[in-house]
Design a protein around this nucleic acid. Sequence first.
DNA 1: ACCTGAACACCGTTCAAGT
DNA 2: ACCTGAACACCGTTCAAGT
Lengths: 218, 218
Amino acid sequence: MTATISPTGKRPYHHGDLRKALQTAASELIRQRGAEAVSLREISQVAGVSHAAAYRHYADKQALLADLAEAGFHELAQLNRSSIEACTAGPLAQLMASGRAYVRFGARQPHLLQLMFGGAISDWQSHPALVQAGAALAQALTDLIVAGQACGEMRAGDPADLTLTAWSLVHGLALLVIGKRIPGAVGDEEALIDQIAQRCVALLAQGLGTPAGVAALA
Amino acid sequence: MTATISPTGKRPYHHGDLRKALQTAASELIRQRGAEAVSLREISQVAGVSHAAAYRHYADKQALLADLAEAGFHELAQLNRSSIEACTAGPLAQLMASGRAYVRFGARQPHLLQLMFGGAISDWQSHPALVQAGAALAQALTDLIVAGQACGEMRAGDPADLTLTAWSLVHGLALLVIGKRIPGAVGDEEALIDQIAQRCVALLAQGLGTPAGVAALA
DNA sequence: ACCTGAACACCGTTCAAGT
DNA sequence: ACCTGAACACCGTTCAAGT
């Protein structure tokens, strides 16, 4: 932000914080149209620079996409934490709340979820920050399940199995909702989607919970 | 196939069955590298024609991709039927077998599953045959669940909810496996993936099954 | 250090023209 | 009826040159 905005109103040669401007522009465009439908050239244009300028801040288009996906993981993890904290009941009920938040996130930002999990980022492994952000999300789920097992609300067994089952359910549900593959719920009404998600995570809870845990839900 | 192959060995002007040749070439390339990494021009070249010839058989690239995705749905539906028929136990056990087959399909042909459910085909609704093929797959699942409810192995409730829950679980699991998001199972060993899938669908069965149904599994 | 403009090798798509 | 070749408007990426 140092000496980049001239008083004349003309745009200066140096942008100031082009990296952030690219993130903002890309995020906006991708949330609207999806990663495949947005070019680096258009992002640069919206950010107000030439089409080659982005390469001073990102190695290639993949790196920019990975950056946005990482931000998406942080956002989802934050929503996850909020939904868990907002639920004053036990871990099993918190797991259900967390699952609904996951589906809600997908329904609100379908193109972002596609970017985070779809094939747009070809070499996931070469973006360590992205791997880290994804792993943190899974760890939060595992923590919840271990807590549930400790207090007898959740079934015994390898926490990794319970984690993967819970994650798979909400992940698959979110993607099926996004893809409009659900007959009878083609619309985007958020309330309807949330009701569907509620019923699915309730069935999940039947599978993961102990009899005592399930009884406590009602 | 009429008068298209000259005895001299030189390629004739007319291909004969270019549509099928394009499908074959595209299927091969996409299964190896994914839809985003394959161009219509390369597909045409592999099929042995100029890059414009494809437009005589497909409206655009999306139409070719939709055609391949539809074939994928038929293949998956067939695997689904086979796995159910091969299981001589009750509907709950058949549901588990079906789920494992779904995950196995995804693990074997990750790029195809991405094509079928990812964002590569932007306007799904404008390819009716594709919608139909996807709906048929969901219907097979619902049939299984209704049968399970009828014989008391599966929990009562709206079959649509049970269907969506089961589908979401196996769909999410397949995609997480494909994306190598599963810590501890980064490898491609099919046997390992199948064991993981087995444990997840077992937990699903705990949620969807009645006590009697679950008892019958053991 | 940061950005621009021209250039390169690609795309998807169209269309007159060939067989 | 089916395919080709040239053309158009785009891409992502590179690099000398400008500030």
